[in-house]
């Protein structure tokens, strides 16, 4: 019996997107290992968000999960399966929200702006705020999982991790603020517009 084609059809993943997923995952891993000495300050979250923004929610989530599958397994701070699962789920959130942001037209004005445009700061600020709030949700979620896994009360986990959470959230605010618009513009120019040119 043949399955109806619309049920069997998987979301399309072009070679271009697949290459970009692998490349951004590699960049994430390289930057994560390079920044290992700074706890909770990483470019990874921004890159995952951008992946979702330029390719869609599913590829963005894949970048987040793939990065953590490798980084969480080969990590000098140790391996813990429930924590790995939590970080994979949490990280995929950046990709999903990145995809949704693009879908709902957030930052769509970027394509008609240049770096000297005054309004670009407003767009940057919006993405800085999104980065901060997403990181807050990510930290809260991973703290809840850590508390459950290690049997530590949630309040104690949050109190112990305040300095790390603040470093994570504030650094991500700045990374999203300063990095998002320029990187998205660059990736779109290099990858998408470039491909279209030679098609």
């Amino acid at each position: 019996m043949d399955y109806p084609s619309n049920i069997m059809k998987l979301p399309s993943l072009s070679t271009k997107n697949l290459s970009l997923i692998i490349m951004i995952t590699a960049i994430n891993l390289a930057s994560n290992y390079a920044m290992l000495w700074i706890p909770n300050v990483k470019f990874m979250d921004l890159f995952v968000f951008i992946s979702g923004y330029v390719m869609g929610a599913v590829p963005g989530a894949i970048v987040g999960i793939l990065t953590w599958l490798i980084y969480g397994t080969l990590n000098p701070r140790g391996f813990n399966l429930p924590t790995l699962a939590a970080t994979c789920v949490g990280e995929s959130l950046y990709g999903i929200v990145g995809g949704l942001s693009a879908k709902f037209g957030l930052g769509s004005e970027l394509s008609s702006m240049n770096t000297n445009d005054d309004k670009i700061w407003l767009v940057n600020l919006k993405f800085g705020i999104i980065g901060f709030l997403l990181t807050f949700i990510y930290d809260l979620f991973t703290n809840i999982v850590t508390g459950i896994v290690f049997g530590i009360p949630l309040i104690a986990v949050i109190l112990q991790g305040i300095a790390f959470a603040l470093a994570h959230e504030i650094s991500n605010f700045f990374f999203f603020f300063f990095g998002f618009s320029s990187l998205v513009t660059l990736i779109k120019k290099l990858v998408f517009m470039g491909v279209r040119k030679y098609e």
Partner: peptide, 12 residues
């Protein structure tokens, strides 16, 4: 965002 930072700082 500022509220979250304030709560964190106050709790810390």
């Amino acid at each position: 965002c500022l509220l979250i930072i304030s709560i964190y700082v106050a709790a810390y």
